[in-house]
Amino acid sequence: MRPGSGAVLALTLLAGLAAAATARAQDAAPQTCEVPPYLLSTESTLPKVAEAVRNARPLTVLVVGSRSSTILSSENSAYPAKLQAALKEKLPSIPVNLSVELQTGKTAEEVDHSLVKLVEAKRPTLVIWQTGTVDAMRSVDPDDFRGAIDDGVVALQNAGTDVVLVNLQYSPRTETMISAPPYLDNMRVVAQQHGVPLFDRFAIMRHWNDAGDFDLFSTFHGTDMAKRVHACLGRALSKFVLDAARLDQAQQN
């Protein structure tokens, strides 16, 4: 071994230790998972949400999603629960109800059938529809996928609720197996056409991965990282919803 390589090895070890130390610090301290403003800005609005908040009526949120809207065996740490907590905190004067309807393993088209029924049962102000993952995994024809979300969004709007679309997770490990881009594109198109805010979960998570907030490549076992990512997603989503509803700071208090 040349003398130089020893130094390199030592440096690498040091860097590794430092990384481990910061990782541990991250566990304890609140996440620094900042989201650049452009990823949270939207031209579309949520008039029903705005109206409910202004008139101090209860805000009822329904999250319709697949398995990536929960963490197995710790639902209370998943992003919907975190979203509810954040909304409650920011809107202390009104009650915030939130329920989650998991449609595990169903494509957008399959979810379509139950959307209206769900809305009639829960009467939500806002439906947060997380979709695309199952369709991408089954490589559903992107045109059919677009048609399905289109129908779903129209049905929800006709039923009198606001809609927020949430797209796929950024999942670098399965990038060689799941082709996300067509589904991301089509969700963007539908959101644009119907003036529905799109929460770009994919871009946000990729930003966190690139910025080093989370190493989404890691083979981490256990639910710890999942919980931290979901906490960040919930917080970002709450900010996104309030921004889309154009509720500025004054009204939130």
């Binding site: 963490i71 199952v134 990512v229 979901h230």
Partner: peptide, 14 residues
């Protein structure tokens, strides 16, 4: 090898 609960859904592709 991969068992990140964050991606339990995506791993269904396997």
């Amino acid at each position: 090898r991969f068992e990140n609960p964050l991606y339990s859904e995506e791993m269904g592709i396997m």
